[in-house]
Simulated assay, not measured.
Amino acid sequence: MSRLWLIGGTQESRQLVQRLVLQLPSGLSSGPACVITVTTEPARSLYPVSSQLQIQVGQLTPDEAEDFWRTHDIAAILDLSHPFATSISQLAIAFAQRYQLPYLRYERTLVDDPPSSWRDRQQRLGMVRVPHLQALLTSEYLSGDRTLLTLGYRQLAAFVPWQSQATLFARILPSPVALKTALDAGFTPERLIALRPPISAELETALWQHWQITQIVTKASGQPGGQDQKQILAARLGVRLLQIQRPAIAYPAQTDDLDTALQFALRYCN
């Protein structure tokens, strides 16, 4: 039985799979119709328990792609990974081209620009778009500020050289690997907070004020990542927002409509 490979780990992938399971016939003797890949064990809990689903945890490498394709008899790929998870998207695109498989990327929409610009408490431009992480690290963006990083724990190692030159704080997921990574990167316990999104505006505000944050480093990850809320709070509190832009990837086929992605999934799960 051919199967759909669904690259998950996001809120949208959970929403789609919940709808997908309701529309698939149950109890097929030929096994699951959809293989979902996620990178962490906690992400497994995003999805319902169903005989139609198989969930594989771990980062799929190029060397493993051939075995993965043959083992699961992949017929099509639906990519609902995070906008900044470029490695798995590039692997999936190459995989689809090599084996001539149908591929669809669901890309969450960008958050609209704020209706008006603002200045921070130092009268600097409030919204600063940074093209990529390296640009942030090779500039003077971080000196002299109390900076909160909301980039995810995997990026924290890049800030090790700045620990002696800047005042850095980080918000991470409440997991042992995230905490260990942050501590190894030089963040002391009093400059860390472990929270799982979504985070209320009230809690976000209290955190920024408690740490006396002067600027936030975030990603243009869309509304599910809290991008719109950060823009609103930064403008209200006079905080500078350094927003790292999404990587540019040429997807073979792309949609921002979850219904379109669901119809693609149904076509290849059946």
Rank of each mutant, 00 (worst) to 15 (best):
T71M: 12
F84S: 05
T138F: 06
A166V: 15
V130Y: 14
Q134C: 03
P114F: 09
Y47I: 12
E41L: 12
Y47H: 11
F68K: 05
H132V: 02
T150S: 05
F68S: 04
L110D: 14
T150H: 06
Q59R: 15
P114A: 05
G144V: 10
Q54N: 04
Q163D: 02
Q100C: 06
P48C: 03
R146T: 02
Q52H: 01
F84H: 14
G58P: 13
P115S: 08
R44M: 09
R108G: 01
I74C: 01
A65D: 04
I93G: 04
E41I: 06
G58A: 06
S51C: 03
L125S: 07
Q123G: 04
L133M: 15
L137H: 12
L137Q: 09
D73W: 11
P42A: 11
A85M: 06
L46T: 08
T40C: 11
E66Q: 09
Q122P: 00
Q54C: 06
A85H: 03
I55N: 11
Q54L: 08
P131H: 03
A65G: 01
S143D: 13
T61F: 11
E66A: 01
A76K: 04
W118V: 04
S164W: 06
I88R: 13
A166P: 09
L104K: 02
L60H: 01
F84M: 14
E107W: 04
Q122C: 02
L91M: 11
R154S: 06
V128A: 02
L133I: 15
I88C: 10
D63L: 15
A157C: 03
Q52Y: 09
P161A: 00
W162Y: 13
P48I: 03
L80I: 05
A94W: 14
T138R: 10
L46A: 06
L148I: 10
D79F: 03
R70F: 05
V57H: 08
S45A: 05
G126W: 09
S143M: 09
V111L: 10
P102T: 05
L46I: 13
L80T: 03
H82S: 03
A157T: 01
L148S: 02
V130P: 15
G144M: 05
Q56A: 00
R98D: 11
G152C: 07
G126Y: 09
V111R: 04
E41W: 10
L148K: 01
P62C: 01
P161D: 09
R44P: 06
V57C: 07
V49W: 11
Q97D: 12
S81L: 07
R129Q: 14
D113N: 09
Q90V: 05
F159R: 10
L148D: 00
Q100V: 10
L168W: 08
H132L: 08
V160L: 08
L136A: 05
R70S: 14
L142V: 08
L60I: 08
Y103K: 05
S116V: 06
